[in-house]
Design a protein around this nucleic acid. Structure first.
Length: 507
DNA sequence: CGGTTTTGACCTGCGC
DNA sequence: GCGCAGGTCAAAACCG
């Protein structure tokens, strides 16, 4: 799905190269082959060797080449050079051949060392990725186990006290309600599965669904992933469903909850920008605009147009208090490959959403084994103050605030530069949990844990500062994150459509 | 001409 | 039941 972009010296390193036919600036291995080939030609033709030698040198820095001439690195050869010093012609004699051979050998050694280092680097990165994958898998399994446990407790509590359950559904426990709601079928789910889930639904929900079965619009919504009252605007609908849900579906609910956790989250990005929208690498079509209450600035609604039927939407609105701040809220998951620039954003928002959702299903005691911490440490290394999770919003929403504290991460800037270095910047965003977090059942990253992970964070930040690696890692993590869902959903186009696709499925 | 934006109407959920 | 607000639709206008 991704490649680690290893640069062993790009075209910039050898601007003076002859235009040989086999010249391919991005192929380090080809250069290596060329090198050996040229070495073999030594015996054949010195002139040719000279040409090839220059060609080979492109893997080395020009400084080395210059040093050879200007500073006389090979002092032993200088004598030989001096011997032929009067001869400025391009014709080499036997002594210069020796010099060239020695030089070639030195270059050969240097080149091999560089390649070796590069190979080791690749191997290390692979190991890191593998380790991250393993960590994620184990954490995910733990997450499932804990969710089961929590679900059991939840049902016990509900059956034990209806009052308590009612209070939960009326008031503070917004998130669990949404998770249940999110368990409803998605577009990727087969029609059979949809029917099954629907049939499990309580009469109220069925009535509600049937009452919506009118008109073309409804049909469209039925086709779309979020048909089942999964819209942005009806977050509490299924909570009632949840309240009346029985215990016989615990496992099903567990599954749906797991899916649900990846479904409904919104990722809101606050960034200072004078532009009407943030350039996040995707193509969007505006499909609506509304004046929101309490904000003189209209809210614009956009839909991803990079692929037909892509469920990803975003809302763009300027902050009422500070017009220079652009609030972009993403929801959904792309069902198509993304360009790298968009991948940055998608990966970041996916990670944020995953963090939000996975964390929200955990109890506070689970913090240490919560994947949230993994994400917080891997994806948002400086987790301290830049992301807000809001439980007061109708949906679990994580807000990445790019308007402040831009000092603690390299290359920090606004989202508008995402095309260049978006991921590192985003990854540099830290998380903080506002007061509303206390309402959140599980979104607590223990300060302890974060402190313990500071070294990890620092290392991660350093790595993430490299856009290439960041892109690769983000892509990898995205695929990891999305993996299970993709399997469930069955028809995912890429590794990119989990959190977000699922979270938008209500249209 | 095809894609995008604009904008008024419509749908839906929620609170009173 | 009614009104409000958020979200969406879709025809018309606009644009490259």
């Amino acid at each position: 799905m991704f490649r680690f972009p290893v640069s062993l010296g790009g075209p910039h390193d050898n601007p003076k190269q002859p235009q040989s036919s086999d010249e391919q600036p991005h192929r380090a291995m080809m250069n290596e082959v060329d090198f050996f080939r040229s070495e073999k030609r030594d015996d054949e033709n010195i002139i040719t060797d000279e040409t090839n030698r220059v060609h080979v040198k492109r893997e080395n820095s020009r400084v080395v080449d210059d040093d050879d001439r200007s500073t006389g690195i090979n002092t032993g050869l200088n004598l030989l050079t001096a011997h032929t010093g009067s001869d400025e012609s391009m014709v080499d004699d036997g002594l210069s051949v020796d010099m060239e051979e020695k030089r070639s050998k030195i270059e050969n050694v240097q080149l091999r060392e560089e390649l070796k280092k590069a190979a080791e680097e690749i191997q290390r990165l692979k190991e890191m990725l593998s380790q991250t994958t393993n960590n994620f898998n184990s954490l995910q399994m733990q997450l499932v186990a804990v969710m089961r446990q929590q679900e059991d407790h939840h049902h016990l509590a509900m059956t034990g006290s209806k009052d308590i359950a009612n209070k939960r559904h009326e008031g503070s426990e917004m998130v669990p309600r949404q998770f249940i709601e999110l368990g409803l079928p998605t577009a990727e789910v087969s029609s059979e599965e949809r029917t099954t889930v629907r049939s499990r639904s309580p009469p109220s929900l069925l009535e509600n669904s049937s009452s919506r079965q009118r008109g073309k619009r409804l049909l469209e919504r039925e086709e779309s992933p979020e048909t089942q009252s999964n819209g942005w605007g009806n977050p509490n609908k299924v909570s009632k469903h949840n309240a009346s849900s029985s215990n016989d579906n615990v496992s099903a609910i567990d599954q749906s909850t797991a899916e649900a956790t990846m479904r409904k989250a919104r990722v809101s990005v606050r960034a200072r920008s004078e532009a009407p929208t943030l350039s996040d690498g995707c193509h969007w079509r505006k499909y609506g605009q509304k004046m929101a209450k309490g904000n003189p600035c209209p809210r614009a609604y956009f839909r991803c147009t990079m692929a037909v039927g892509c469920p990803v939407r975003k809302q763009v609105q300027r902050c009422a208090e500070e017009r220079s701040i652009l609030i972009t809220t993403y929801e959904g998951n792309h069902n198509h490959p993304l360009p790298p620039a968009a991948m940055y954003m998608a990966s970041t928002t996916t990670a944020a959403a995953s963090m939000l959702l996975s964390g929200s299903t955990m109890s506070s005691q689970d913090g240490l084994m919560n994947p949230t911490n993994l994400f917080a440490r891997t994806m948002l290394p400086c987790s301290s103050s830049m992301a807000t999770i809001s439980a007061s919003a109708p949906f679990p929403t994580i807000t990445l605030d790019l308007t402040e504290s831009a000092s603690n991460f390299p290359q920090r800037s606004g989202f508008t530069e995402l095309n260049q270095s978006g991921l590192p910047q985003m990854m540099g965003q830290a998380l903080y949990y506002n007061q509303q977090q206390s309402k959140f059942s599980g979104l607590q990253i223990p300060t302890q844990s974060l402190n313990a992970g500071e070294s990890v964070s620092a290392a991660t930040a350093a790595i993430a500062a490299n856009p290439n690696f960041a892109a690769a890692l983000a892509a990898a993590l995205t695929s990891i994150i999305n993996g299970p869902n993709n399997h469930k959903n069955g028809d995912s186009n890429n590794g990119n459509n989990n959190v977000r696709t699922s979270s938008v499925e209500r249209q």
